[in-house]
């Protein structure tokens, strides 16, 4: 038999080595992942993203303000666009996260004709007051998160997302 041909026995042992190698790599992987993870995290830094929204144009009525950054999701690296619901309360600028605190759908201001003056989540009819406070009896168990905001040359800049800090 030629030396170059893989005999049945050799084939088996290659396979087993292959599996062993795979198992070894799965043992090593978690450590590598922990080591690498912090560098991959975009969130948690206190950088602000300046939006196209002029602060002087904000009113008491929440509007959707979009902003973009690079992100990698399961299959795809792309510019993602995120939103905030932004309005003025007196002199203060309030920017709420649109992410429903139940299971994460995107909420809409006055998204249901039956509930004016509220944020509405179409997934399981979650509702929030204008300040983001969740309405008891609907699925969400906490208020909408809130962005830290800044004004940069007249434009709205959005920073970190924090637990809602205006709902008392």
């Amino acid at each position: 038999m030629s030396n170059n041909r893989v005999s049945r026995r050799q084939f088996l042992s290659y396979t087993i080595m292959g599996v062993g190698g795979f198992m070894a790599s799965s043992l090593v992987l978690p450590m590598v992942r922990f080591a690498v993870d912090p560098a991959l995290q975009v969130e948690g830094d206190s950088d602000f993203i300046v939006t196209d929204q002029l602060v002087s144009e904000l009113t008491e009525e929440p509007i959707r303000v979009s902003f973009s950054y690079e992100q990698q999701d399961a299959w795809y690296t792309s510019e993602v666009t995120n939103d905030a619901w932004v309005y003025k309360a007196g002199d203060e600028i309030i920017a709420l996260s649109p992410v429903c605190k139940h299971l994460g759908c995107t909420v809409q201001w006055e998204g249901s004709a039956d509930f004016p003056n509220q944020f509405f989540c179409p997934c399981h009819n979650g509702r929030y007051e204008k300040n983001g406070n969740n309405i008891p009896g609907t699925p969400p168990l906490g208020p909408l998160d809130q962005f830290v905001v800044e004004v940069r040359d007249g434009y709205l800049a959005l920073g970190e997302v924090k637990p809602n800090f205006i709902v008392s």
């Binding site: 999701d73 792309s78 299971l103 759908c105 995107t106 997934c123 399981h124």
Partner: peptide
């Protein structure tokens, strides 16, 4: 992906 983000919870 956009659709998923909109309706993530359901």
């Amino acid at each position: 992906s956009l659709l998923e983000r909109q309706f993530k919870g359901r």
